[in-house]
Amino acid sequence: MCRRLTILLVMLLPLGLGACATSPLGRSQLALFDDSQLQQQGAEAYQQYAGSHERATGATADYASCVANAIIRELPQGDGPEQWQVGVFKDDSPNAFALPGGYVVINSGMLKVAENQDQLATVVGHEMAHVLADHANERTSTQTLTQSGLGVIQAVAGSGGEQLATLLGAGAQYGILLPYSRKQESEADVLGLRLMARAGFNPEASLQLWQNMSQASGSNEPPAWASTHPSNGQRINALESHMSEAQQTAARAREASLRPDCQRP
Protein backbone atom coordinates (compact mmCIF):
# COMPACT_ATOMS: atom_id res chain seq x y z
CA MET A 1 0.00 0.00 0.00
CA CYS A 2 2.75 2.46 0.96
CA ARG A 3 4.51 1.91 -2.33
CA ARG A 4 1.30 2.50 -4.31
CA LEU A 5 0.63 5.76 -2.44
CA THR A 6 4.14 7.02 -3.06
CA ILE A 7 3.79 6.28 -6.76
CA LEU A 8 0.46 8.12 -6.79
CA LEU A 9 2.03 11.29 -5.38
CA VAL A 10 4.90 11.09 -7.83
CA MET A 11 2.38 10.77 -10.67
CA LEU A 12 0.21 13.67 -9.51
CA LEU A 13 2.99 16.23 -9.39
CA PRO A 14 4.36 15.90 -12.93
CA LEU A 15 0.80 16.11 -14.26
CA GLY A 16 0.56 19.67 -13.03
CA LEU A 17 4.15 20.53 -13.80
CA GLY A 18 3.58 19.51 -17.40
CA ALA A 19 0.79 22.09 -17.91
CA CYS A 20 3.22 24.95 -18.09
CA ALA A 21 4.21 28.28 -19.50
CA THR A 22 7.75 29.26 -20.49
CA SER A 23 10.09 31.53 -18.55
CA PRO A 24 12.17 34.27 -20.21
CA LEU A 25 15.10 31.83 -20.22
CA GLY A 26 13.06 29.08 -21.88
CA ARG A 27 12.42 27.02 -18.75
CA SER A 28 9.06 25.27 -18.36
CA GLN A 29 6.87 26.77 -15.63
CA LEU A 30 3.64 25.86 -13.90
CA ALA A 31 1.08 28.70 -13.89
CA LEU A 32 -2.33 27.80 -12.45
CA PHE A 33 -3.44 31.26 -11.35
CA ASP A 34 -4.77 34.29 -13.19
CA ASP A 35 -2.35 37.23 -13.23
CA SER A 36 -5.03 39.59 -11.87
CA GLN A 37 -5.30 37.45 -8.72
CA LEU A 38 -1.59 37.68 -8.02
CA GLN A 39 -1.48 41.39 -8.85
CA GLN A 40 -4.23 42.02 -6.31
CA GLN A 41 -2.36 39.99 -3.73
CA GLY A 42 0.80 41.92 -4.56
CA ALA A 43 -0.98 45.23 -4.01
CA GLU A 44 -2.38 44.05 -0.69
CA ALA A 45 1.00 42.75 0.47
CA TYR A 46 2.67 46.03 -0.46
CA GLN A 47 0.07 48.09 1.41
CA GLN A 48 0.42 45.84 4.44
CA TYR A 49 4.21 46.23 4.44
CA ALA A 50 3.97 49.98 3.93
CA GLY A 51 1.46 50.21 6.78
CA SER A 52 3.78 48.45 9.22
CA HIS A 53 7.02 50.23 8.27
CA GLU A 54 8.14 53.84 8.37
CA ARG A 55 9.07 55.23 4.97
CA ALA A 56 12.59 56.44 4.44
CA THR A 57 12.92 60.04 3.33
CA GLY A 58 15.57 62.41 2.06
CA ALA A 59 18.83 61.22 0.54
CA THR A 60 18.31 57.53 1.38
CA ALA A 61 14.95 57.36 -0.37
CA ASP A 62 16.18 59.43 -3.32
CA TYR A 63 19.22 57.22 -3.80
CA ALA A 64 17.41 53.87 -3.68
CA SER A 65 14.58 55.17 -5.87
CA CYS A 66 17.09 56.54 -8.37
CA VAL A 67 18.64 53.07 -8.80
CA ALA A 68 15.28 51.32 -9.15
CA ASN A 69 13.87 53.87 -11.56
CA ALA A 70 16.97 53.70 -13.76
CA ILE A 71 16.25 50.00 -14.27
CA ILE A 72 12.51 50.51 -14.70
CA ARG A 73 13.05 53.04 -17.49
CA GLU A 74 15.03 50.52 -19.52
CA LEU A 75 12.81 47.47 -19.10
CA PRO A 76 12.00 45.70 -22.39
CA GLN A 77 8.81 47.14 -23.86
CA GLY A 78 5.75 45.09 -23.09
CA ASP A 79 7.43 43.08 -20.34
CA GLY A 80 5.86 43.08 -16.91
CA PRO A 81 3.59 45.67 -15.28
CA GLU A 82 2.86 48.91 -17.10
CA GLN A 83 3.68 50.92 -13.98
CA TRP A 84 5.99 50.27 -11.06
CA GLN A 85 5.88 51.67 -7.56
CA VAL A 86 9.06 51.93 -5.49
CA GLY A 87 8.92 52.07 -1.71
CA VAL A 88 11.99 52.69 0.47
CA PHE A 89 11.53 51.91 4.17
CA LYS A 90 13.43 52.35 7.41
CA ASP A 91 14.39 48.81 8.34
CA ASP A 92 17.85 47.63 9.35
CA SER A 93 17.43 44.17 7.80
CA PRO A 94 19.32 43.98 4.48
CA ASN A 95 16.33 43.05 2.39
CA ALA A 96 14.55 44.00 -0.82
CA PHE A 97 11.77 42.34 -2.77
CA ALA A 98 9.36 42.91 -5.63
CA LEU A 99 5.71 41.88 -5.82
CA PRO A 100 3.32 41.01 -8.65
CA GLY A 101 1.69 44.14 -9.98
CA GLY A 102 4.92 46.13 -10.01
CA TYR A 103 5.83 46.92 -6.40
CA VAL A 104 9.48 47.24 -5.38
CA VAL A 105 10.44 47.38 -1.70
CA ILE A 106 13.93 48.36 -0.54
CA ASN A 107 14.92 48.39 3.12
CA SER A 108 17.42 51.01 4.24
CA GLY A 109 19.47 48.17 5.72
CA MET A 110 20.25 46.92 2.23
CA LEU A 111 22.51 49.94 1.76
CA LYS A 112 24.85 48.49 4.40
CA VAL A 113 25.48 45.46 2.20
CA ALA A 114 25.15 47.03 -1.25
CA GLU A 115 28.01 49.50 -1.05
CA ASN A 116 27.40 51.44 -4.27
CA GLN A 117 24.76 52.03 -6.92
CA ASP A 118 25.89 49.11 -9.06
CA GLN A 119 25.64 46.63 -6.20
CA LEU A 120 22.21 47.97 -5.26
CA ALA A 121 21.17 47.65 -8.91
CA THR A 122 22.15 43.97 -8.71
CA VAL A 123 19.68 43.45 -5.87
CA VAL A 124 16.88 45.48 -7.43
CA GLY A 125 17.34 43.86 -10.84
CA HIS A 126 17.21 40.42 -9.25
CA GLU A 127 13.98 41.17 -7.39
CA MET A 128 12.28 42.72 -10.42
CA ALA A 129 13.31 39.69 -12.47
CA HIS A 130 11.16 37.54 -10.19
CA VAL A 131 8.12 39.56 -11.26
CA LEU A 132 9.02 39.62 -14.95
CA ALA A 133 9.54 35.84 -14.91
CA ASP A 134 6.19 35.23 -13.16
CA HIS A 135 7.88 33.35 -10.35
CA ALA A 136 5.12 34.11 -7.80
CA ASN A 137 2.57 32.28 -9.95
CA GLU A 138 4.96 29.40 -10.44
CA ARG A 139 5.79 29.01 -6.76
CA THR A 140 2.18 29.31 -5.63
CA SER A 141 1.05 26.85 -8.27
CA THR A 142 3.72 24.33 -7.29
CA GLN A 143 2.85 24.55 -3.61
CA THR A 144 -0.86 24.22 -4.38
CA LEU A 145 -0.32 21.16 -6.54
CA THR A 146 1.92 19.56 -3.94
CA GLN A 147 -0.64 20.10 -1.17
CA SER A 148 -3.36 18.69 -3.41
CA GLY A 149 -1.31 15.56 -4.00
CA LEU A 150 -0.73 15.12 -0.27
CA GLY A 151 -4.46 15.54 0.34
CA VAL A 152 -5.21 12.70 -2.05
CA ILE A 153 -2.64 10.50 -0.31
CA GLN A 154 -4.18 11.17 3.09
CA ALA A 155 -7.70 10.44 1.85
CA VAL A 156 -6.68 7.16 0.23
CA ALA A 157 -4.58 6.01 3.20
CA GLY A 158 -7.38 6.46 5.72
CA SER A 159 -6.36 6.34 9.37
CA GLY A 160 -2.66 6.11 8.55
CA GLY A 161 -2.83 8.93 6.05
CA GLU A 162 -1.88 11.78 8.37
CA GLN A 163 1.48 10.29 9.34
CA LEU A 164 2.21 9.25 5.77
CA ALA A 165 1.29 12.67 4.41
CA THR A 166 3.67 14.26 6.93
CA LEU A 167 6.54 12.01 5.82
CA LEU A 168 5.83 12.59 2.15
CA GLY A 169 5.43 16.29 2.82
CA ALA A 170 9.01 16.44 4.08
CA GLY A 171 10.13 14.62 0.95
CA ALA A 172 8.19 17.04 -1.24
CA GLN A 173 9.69 20.00 0.61
CA TYR A 174 13.29 18.95 0.03
CA GLY A 175 12.76 17.12 -3.26
CA ILE A 176 10.44 19.49 -5.12
CA LEU A 177 9.64 22.85 -3.53
CA LEU A 178 13.12 23.96 -2.45
CA PRO A 179 14.93 22.90 -5.64
CA TYR A 180 12.18 24.51 -7.67
CA SER A 181 12.74 27.73 -5.74
CA ARG A 182 16.48 27.52 -6.27
CA LYS A 183 15.84 27.35 -10.01
CA GLN A 184 13.84 30.55 -9.73
CA GLU A 185 16.58 32.27 -7.76
CA SER A 186 19.25 31.26 -10.25
CA GLU A 187 17.06 32.46 -13.11
CA ALA A 188 16.45 35.79 -11.37
CA ASP A 189 20.21 36.21 -10.92
CA VAL A 190 20.79 35.91 -14.68
CA LEU A 191 17.79 38.03 -15.68
CA GLY A 192 18.60 40.63 -13.04
CA LEU A 193 22.16 40.86 -14.32
CA ARG A 194 20.79 41.61 -17.78
CA LEU A 195 18.39 44.24 -16.43
CA MET A 196 21.01 46.19 -14.50
CA ALA A 197 23.47 46.03 -17.39
CA ARG A 198 20.76 47.20 -19.80
CA ALA A 199 20.33 50.29 -17.62
CA GLY A 200 24.05 51.06 -17.75
CA PHE A 201 25.14 49.79 -14.36
CA ASN A 202 28.40 47.89 -13.98
CA PRO A 203 27.59 44.14 -14.00
CA GLU A 204 30.91 43.20 -12.39
CA ALA A 205 29.62 44.77 -9.17
CA SER A 206 27.24 41.82 -8.85
CA LEU A 207 30.16 39.58 -7.86
CA GLN A 208 31.19 41.83 -4.99
CA LEU A 209 27.57 42.17 -3.88
CA TRP A 210 27.24 38.43 -3.31
CA GLN A 211 30.60 38.35 -1.56
CA ASN A 212 29.24 41.04 0.76
CA MET A 213 26.07 38.99 1.27
CA SER A 214 28.19 35.96 2.13
CA GLN A 215 30.10 37.93 4.75
CA ALA A 216 26.88 39.36 6.16
CA SER A 217 25.25 35.93 6.49
CA GLY A 218 28.38 34.37 8.00
CA SER A 219 27.80 30.93 9.47
CA ASN A 220 24.01 31.41 9.35
CA GLU A 221 23.80 30.40 5.69
CA PRO A 222 22.08 26.99 5.40
CA PRO A 223 23.47 24.28 3.11
CA ALA A 224 22.36 24.78 -0.49
CA TRP A 225 20.34 21.55 -0.55
CA ALA A 226 18.15 22.78 2.34
CA SER A 227 17.76 26.37 1.20
CA THR A 228 15.39 28.22 -1.06
CA HIS A 229 18.42 30.02 -2.47
CA PRO A 230 21.64 28.81 -4.09
CA SER A 231 24.72 29.35 -1.95
CA ASN A 232 26.47 32.67 -2.43
CA GLY A 233 29.41 30.83 -3.97
CA GLN A 234 27.12 29.12 -6.48
CA ARG A 235 25.59 32.47 -7.38
CA ILE A 236 28.98 34.06 -7.97
CA ASN A 237 30.06 31.19 -10.22
CA ALA A 238 26.85 31.41 -12.24
CA LEU A 239 27.14 35.18 -12.63
CA GLU A 240 30.73 34.85 -13.81
CA SER A 241 29.58 32.51 -16.56
CA HIS A 242 27.21 35.22 -17.87
CA MET A 243 29.52 38.18 -17.25
CA SER A 244 30.87 38.58 -20.78
CA GLU A 245 27.36 38.94 -22.21
CA ALA A 246 26.39 41.40 -19.46
CA GLN A 247 29.49 43.52 -20.05
CA GLN A 248 28.62 43.79 -23.73
CA THR A 249 25.08 44.86 -22.80
CA ALA A 250 26.41 47.49 -20.40
CA ALA A 251 28.84 48.77 -23.05
CA ARG A 252 25.96 49.26 -25.49
CA ALA A 253 24.01 51.09 -22.79
CA ARG A 254 26.90 53.45 -22.16
CA GLU A 255 27.22 54.08 -25.89
CA ALA A 256 23.57 55.13 -25.77
CA SER A 257 24.47 57.57 -22.97
CA LEU A 258 22.89 55.50 -20.23
CA ARG A 259 25.15 56.32 -17.31
CA PRO A 260 23.27 56.20 -13.97
CA ASP A 261 24.56 58.64 -11.38
CA CYS A 262 22.69 57.87 -8.18
CA GLN A 263 24.32 59.64 -5.25
CA ARG A 264 24.78 57.39 -2.23
CA PRO A 265 23.99 59.22 1.04
Score class of each variant (00 low, 15 high):
176 I>K: 07
183 K>D: 09
158 G>W: 02
182 R>P: 00
201 F>L: 08
148 S>F: 14
212 N>F: 04
175 G>L: 09
207 L>I: 15
133 A>D: 06
113 V>K: 01
144 T>E: 02
237 N>L: 14
222 P>V: 01
224 A>E: 15
128 M>Q: 06
179 P>S: 11
187 E>W: 08
161 G>H: 02
171 G>I: 10
238 A>Y: 06
201 F>V: 10
218 G>H: 10
226 A>Y: 06
175 G>P: 03
168 L>Q: 01
225 W>F: 10
149 G>D: 03
157 A>D: 04
114 A>I: 14
186 S>D: 07
170 A>S: 13
156 V>F: 06
208 Q>I: 12
157 A>W: 02
112 K>Q: 11
143 Q>I: 15
221 E>R: 05
114 A>F: 07
165 A>M: 04
125 G>D: 05
131 V>F: 06
139 R>V: 13
122 T>M: 09
190 V>F: 02
150 L>D: 01
172 A>S: 08
137 N>D: 12
136 A>W: 01
238 A>M: 12
172 A>K: 00
174 Y>T: 08
142 T>N: 10
212 N>Q: 14
123 V>E: 01
149 G>W: 01
202 N>I: 10
194 R>S: 12
211 Q>D: 07
116 N>E: 03
127 E>Q: 10
195 L>I: 02
198 R>K: 09
224 A>S: 15
110 M>T: 14
183 K>C: 02
142 T>Q: 13
148 S>I: 14
228 T>N: 06
167 L>H: 02
233 G>Q: 15
225 W>P: 02
143 Q>N: 14
173 Q>V: 04
181 S>N: 14
134 D>F: 10
238 A>G: 09
122 T>Y: 05
207 L>R: 11
